[in-house]
Design a protein around this nucleic acid. Structure first.
Length: 686
RNA sequence: GGCCCAGUGGUUCAGUUGGUUAGAACGCCGCCCUGUCACGGCGGAGGUCGAGGGUUCGAGUCCCUUCUGGGUCGCCA
């Protein structure tokens, strides 16, 4: 047995017992003939006393032991003298008097200090060391706790934990999928799941009745502080329930988690607001309700005012809305400029404002454009008092919502209204069923295509898609979307109608969702579900600013991993097996090829050539080989020269070449049948 | 793809309106010390100021390009 106790767990009750402890050497205080060590493990820190007389020849091990080396110490636990008690550590009243010791693993000098704040890229490169930090350790422990609480609750409520596949089928619409090439089916790809959506619905068809899973999900989109390409959702689905049943269930679930993790009592019934109210009153579908600061509509007042800027906006179908900031008269000129800058960044043409001085004086550029009555009306509508500040946005509805929604948050930050230890949870309900995509020129499902509209809105599917309300709901915590769910369509006919409304042809439905539509023919229970982001919840509850603080091995902004340097170039042989033919286009930009001598001519490739004509393919290969040759001729690596040369030749065909995989994906999804796919792949292989 | 911020020994930072040989703390190496706890004392090594170019008599400092990391918009059913 290497150890009998964790370092951090030794207490006075262990007095006089002979213990074996193992851990990392944190600090060494060498007095000459006696050395004090702080030995650390996940449970805490323990002082080890090493006496030259006792350890004899082993004493030199301790004398030369390096910081963060792993050692084993055996000895007696003894009480410290009163004067030598260390109140800073939990084991501060005791120490282990070493009888024997062993160096288990010597540590090289640490690349950074575990005590102070360090550049994040360094932390991520050496994540295995970073995890030894107190903050990371406690975040991971807390994450485990939250996950367990969720599972405990769901277990006790009769949910069955079922695993669904990671290798699954690419889903149209929504986020980009991560694709996994199939060796046994050259030219075909699995997709990693964006969520277990379809499978959990099929589990309902299968009679599981109540399902949950702590599910890994993948989305190939750009990252943010609160968005990682792979993340974890606590996913659940229930049969024979209506929306209200799910919401009640979620209230209980989150109450349970908050109670047992933070000792916070959430309200019995969470605040519920409809999507439209959220958008109009708070300018966001995930409003932060730790403060009010509502948006007020003054379109009707503006329509008849003298200020042509406002009037014109209203006449051309826009809206004018305002926020009254209580005590906002204290804003400095530069703060107002900052707010204006934000407004412009998010699409506003500018930001008008009125300041009501404490003495009642009205200070604004608007005073000369507005009549006294207009201003009175605005003040009344916004319920402004002396000392308040009213700001306006006049534009198209979606821009006004967005701009004022963002300004509302910025103002709250100025007044410090977004306290991290304040938690305000709510439901946003009645999301629109569809969202119009300017880019694609058609309606897309706002939640997903399996979401059930309100029965009374079903008729609008044919006449007014934009007005259809879905039985879809989000849980929002402090302005962050924690998770979402919906009542699902369980009638094959309604589902088919929905697919049609989304513009899928009969063949597309069959190809993409055939098995699902089919399954619904054999007796499907009404069902509904929900999923929340475990990472996000843990981030909020730990007060972290980024998901990376609560994920053991996260990806950085560009989706790569600084520790493993994934994704990376794979061997030709691996591509060969998969029947994939690639050539590498971004020779000089890839960090792996900073130095031209790293460029392996044999592996020059990249960008799937699926969409490229044969004759072009040869030309591109030739051009790239030229670039490599040029690079190799340079005396020293000079990226800018290589890049110039690259651009010179690459630009010619760049527009035809798929640099980011988009075109390739498009081609693949256009290849509707297996035969099409095979033809494409054959083209490439030849 | 756009915009914004940052980069100075291993780490965290300082570095004035451009001006001698770029500093400090911690860490590291060597020596001393038997009750320290962020031990202490003495001595030492370690920097092409992310990279390239430009302006200048002179650049860590100003300009351009680029790399790396972060934030954000687009995107994220």
């Amino acid at each position: 047995m290497l150890r009998t106790h964790y370092c951090g767990n030794i207490r006075e009750s262990n007095m006089k017992s002979y213990v074996k402890v193992c851990g990392w050497v944190n600090t060494k205080r060498d007095m000459g003939g006696i050395i004090f060590l702080d030995l650390h493990d996940r449970e805490g820190t323990l002082q080890i006393v090493c006496d030259m007389e006792i350890l004899k020849d082993k004493f030199k091990i301790i004398e030369s032991v390096k910081n963060q080396s792993v050692i084993q110490v055996s000895g007696k636990v003894r009480l410290r003298d009163d004067q030598t008690i260390n109140p800073k550590i939990a084991t501060g009243t005791v120490e282990v008097y070493a009888q024997d010791c062993k160096l288990l693993s010597e540590a090289a000098p640490m690349p950074f200090s575990l005590e102070e704040d360090v550049r994040e890229d360094l932390r991520l490169k050496y994540r295995f060391l970073d995890i030894r930090r107190e903050s990371m350790l406690s975040n991971l422990k807390f994450r485990h706790k939250i996950q367990k609480l969720a599972q405990d609750y769901l277990d006790s409520d009769g949910f069955i934990n079922v695993e669904t596949p990671m290798l699954t089928k690419s889903t149209p619409e929504g986020a980009r999928d991560y694709l996994v090439p199939s060796r046994l089916h050259p030219g075909e790809f699995y997709a990693l799941p964006q969520s277990p959506q379809i499978f959990k619905q099929l589990l309902m068809v299968g009679g599981i009745d109540k399902y949950y899973q702590v599910a890994r999900c993948f989305r190939d989109e750009d990252l943010r502080a609160d968005r990682q390409p792979e993340f974890t959702q606590v996913d659940m689905e229930m049969s024979f329930v209506e929306q209200e049943d799910v919401l009640k269930h979620l209230e209980k679930l989150f109450k349970y988690i908050f109670k047992h993790s933070m000792n916070i009592e959430l309200d019995e019934r969470f605040t519920r607001i409809t999507w439209k109210t959220a958008m109009d009153r708070y300018g966001s579908d995930k409003p932060d309700l730790r403060f009010d600061l509502p948006i007020v509509d003054i379109t009707d007042i503006s329509k008849i005012c003298k200020f042509s800027v406002f009037r014109n906006v209203v006449d051309s179908g826009g809206v004018v809305r305002a926020i009254c900031v209580k005590g906002g008269d204290v804003f400095s000129r530069s703060q107002i400029d900052e707010l204006t800058k934000t407004a412009v960044t998010f699409g506003a043409k500018g930001m008008a404002w009125i300041s009501l001085r404490p003495d009642g004086e009205i200070y604004s550029i608007l005073t000369k454009y507005f009549s006294k009555e207009d201003i009175e009306a605005i003040i009344n509508r916004t319920e402004a008092k002396n000392g308040d500040f009213i700001l306006f946005c006049a534009d198209k509805l979606d821009i006004v919502r967005k701009v004022l929604g963002v300004l509302r948050l910025e103002i709250a930050d100025i007044f410090g209204l977004r306290r991290k230890d304040d938690y305000k949870i709510l439901f946003v309900t009645d999301f629109p069923q569809f969202e119009y995509s300017e880019e694609e020129g058609r309606f897309l499902a706002m939640h997903h295509p399996f979401t059930m509209p309100y029965p009374e809105d079903l008729d609008l599917l044919d006449t007014d898609k934009g007005a259809v309300r879905a039985q879809a709901y989000d849980v929002v915590l402090n302005g962050v979307e924690l998770g979402s769910g919906s009542v699902r369509i369980y009638d094959a006919k309604v589902q088919e109608k929905m697919f049609q409304a989304l513009g899928f042809s009969a063949e597309e439905i069959k190809e993409r969702f055939g098995f699902m539509v089919d399954s619904f023919k054999y007796g499907t229970p009404p069902h509904a579900g929900f999923a929340f982001g475990l990472d996000r919840l843990v981030m909020l509850l730990t007060g972290s600013n980024s998901l990376r603080e609560v994920i053991a091995f996260p990806k950085i902004k560009d989706g790569s991993c600084l520790m493993t340097s994934a994704p990376n170039v794979v061997d030709e042989e691996q591509l060969e097996v998969l029947k994939l033919d690639l050539f590498r286009a971004e020779i000089s930009t890839k960090k792996k090829h900073k130095n031209h001598s790293d460029i392996d001519v044999d592996k020059v490739v990249a960008l799937a050539m699926l969409s490229i004509k044969e004759e072009e393919k040869e030309k591109i290969k030739e051009d790239l080989l030229n670039i490599i040759e040029f690079a190799n001729q340079l005396e020293k690596a000079d990226i800018s020269q290589i890049r110039e040369k690259e651009l010179e030749v690459v630009n010619v065909f760049r527009k035809d070449v798929v640099t980011n995989g988009n075109r390739r994906d498009e081609m693949l999804s256009n290849a509707k049948t297996k035969e099409d796919g095979l033809i494409l792949v054959k083209k490439v292989v030849e």
